Every structure is written in structure tokens, then in C-alpha cells.
Simulated scan of single mutants.
Amino acid sequence: MRDLWYADQPLVNAAERVRLLERFPELHPTEEGITDVADTYAFFAALCLRYALLAHGSGSADDALSCGHAALTAMGMLEQNAPGASFLGEEQWLQSLSLLGDASGLWDASVAAGRERFRAVSGRIIRQARS
């Protein structure tokens, strides 16, 4: 994932990474669909990574937009289930920063946001397991 931050350096094996990622069970829902909290966010994480790898490997704006849309959708869902959180607004802000061309501070802000999102999803998983 760290290599994706170096947009000016092509990933020589991006296509192979996509092929491997597409084998993840998270990207192959069963007939029942995805209903479990952990499975839902694992699906969105794998989907975002897939689109990020595709965009990095091809330079496709469509793949980049799909990656951003998947991240916004996941954060919107998480925010609905975490009263008082502002995950969607934060994701919109991070995406707008990445478009400005000035990436200073973006790495640190993204890492901090990722940790907070992980805590929120972990908390939902724990609460679901207890019920």
C-alpha cells in the first residue's frame, strides 16, 4: 500500500497485485450477500485497494474516481453507524487535499484517519459479537 503513495513511480507488478487481490473472498460475496460488519468493511477495503492499484497501474481517471467513490461510500456507511462521527466529511477533505497537488501532511492525516476508522470498525465488530 505504501507504494501507491508514489504516483510518479509506476508499480511494475500492479496488474499481478490486482489479480491476486481479486482472489480475496471479500470480493466474491455469497448468494446471501454481505451482512456482517467485518465482511462489509473488508469488502470496501479490498475494493478500494483494487481500484487504487488499477488507477496506479493504468493512470485511469475512472479507476481513481471509483476508488474515491468506494471510500466515500464506506465512510458514509460507517458514519451512519457511529453517532457523532464525521468520517464522510473527513474522507471528502482528504480526497480534496490529494487533488490540490500539495501532499504535505496528507500521509500523516491519512494514517491518523485510518487508525480512527479502524477503531470505529473494531468497536462495531466487538459490539456485534456481544449481541
Rank of each mutant, 00 (worst) to 15 (best):
residue 1 M to I: 11
residue 3 D to A: 15
residue 6 Y to K: 15
residue 6 Y to N: 14
residue 8 D to A: 15
residue 9 Q to T: 08
residue 10 P to T: 06
residue 10 P to H: 10
residue 10 P to W: 03
residue 11 L to Q: 06
residue 11 L to M: 12
residue 12 V to I: 15
residue 13 N to H: 11
residue 13 N to P: 01
residue 16 E to R: 09
residue 17 R to E: 11
residue 17 R to V: 05
residue 18 V to F: 09
residue 18 V to C: 09
residue 19 R to M: 07
residue 19 R to W: 08
residue 19 R to T: 11
residue 20 L to Q: 15
residue 20 L to F: 12
residue 20 L to W: 11
residue 21 L to N: 02
residue 21 L to E: 03
residue 23 R to T: 15
residue 24 F to C: 04
residue 25 P to L: 13
residue 25 P to K: 12
residue 29 P to M: 03
residue 30 T to W: 03
residue 32 E to R: 11
residue 33 G to I: 04
residue 34 I to T: 03
residue 34 I to H: 01
residue 37 V to C: 01
residue 38 A to R: 10
residue 38 A to F: 09
residue 40 T to G: 01
residue 40 T to D: 01
residue 40 T to F: 01
residue 41 Y to E: 01
residue 42 A to N: 13
residue 42 A to K: 07
residue 43 F to T: 03
residue 43 F to W: 11
residue 45 A to T: 07
residue 46 A to F: 00
residue 47 L to H: 02
residue 48 C to T: 12
residue 48 C to F: 08
residue 48 C to Y: 06
residue 49 L to H: 00
residue 49 L to T: 00
residue 49 L to A: 01
residue 49 L to N: 00
residue 49 L to Y: 00
residue 50 R to G: 00
residue 50 R to W: 00
residue 51 Y to V: 04
residue 53 L to K: 01
residue 54 L to C: 07
residue 54 L to M: 14
residue 57 G to K: 03
residue 57 G to M: 06
residue 60 S to C: 09
residue 60 S to R: 08
residue 61 A to S: 12
residue 61 A to I: 13
residue 63 D to L: 08
residue 64 A to S: 13
residue 65 L to M: 12
residue 66 S to P: 04
residue 67 C to M: 15
residue 68 G to V: 00
residue 68 G to L: 00
residue 68 G to N: 03
residue 69 H to T: 12
residue 69 H to K: 12
residue 69 H to A: 15
residue 70 A to Q: 05
residue 70 A to E: 04
residue 71 A to P: 01
residue 71 A to D: 01
residue 72 L to T: 02
residue 72 L to H: 04
residue 74 A to V: 08
residue 75 M to P: 02
residue 75 M to L: 13
residue 76 G to E: 04
residue 77 M to G: 11
residue 78 L to P: 05
residue 79 E to M: 13
residue 81 N to Q: 14
residue 82 A to I: 14
residue 83 P to I: 08
residue 83 P to A: 14
residue 84 G to P: 12
residue 84 G to Q: 07
residue 86 S to E: 14
residue 87 F to P: 00
residue 88 L to T: 07
residue 92 Q to F: 05
residue 92 Q to I: 13
residue 92 Q to E: 14
residue 92 Q to G: 11
residue 93 W to P: 02
residue 93 W to I: 04
residue 94 L to K: 02
residue 95 Q to C: 04
residue 96 S to K: 08
residue 96 S to T: 12
residue 98 S to A: 14
residue 101 G to K: 06
residue 101 G to N: 05
residue 102 D to K: 10
residue 105 G to W: 05
residue 105 G to V: 09
residue 107 W to V: 09
residue 107 W to Q: 14
residue 107 W to L: 15
residue 107 W to R: 15
residue 108 D to W: 11
residue 108 D to P: 07
residue 110 S to R: 02
residue 110 S to L: 02
residue 110 S to E: 01
residue 112 A to R: 11
residue 112 A to I: 10
residue 112 A to Q: 09
residue 113 A to N: 00
residue 115 R to Y: 06
residue 118 F to V: 08
residue 119 R to G: 02
residue 121 V to K: 00
residue 122 S to R: 07
residue 125 I to M: 12
residue 126 I to E: 14
residue 127 R to I: 07
residue 127 R to D: 11
residue 129 A to D: 09
residue 130 R to F: 14
residue 130 R to G: 07
residue 131 S to V: 14
residue 131 S to K: 13
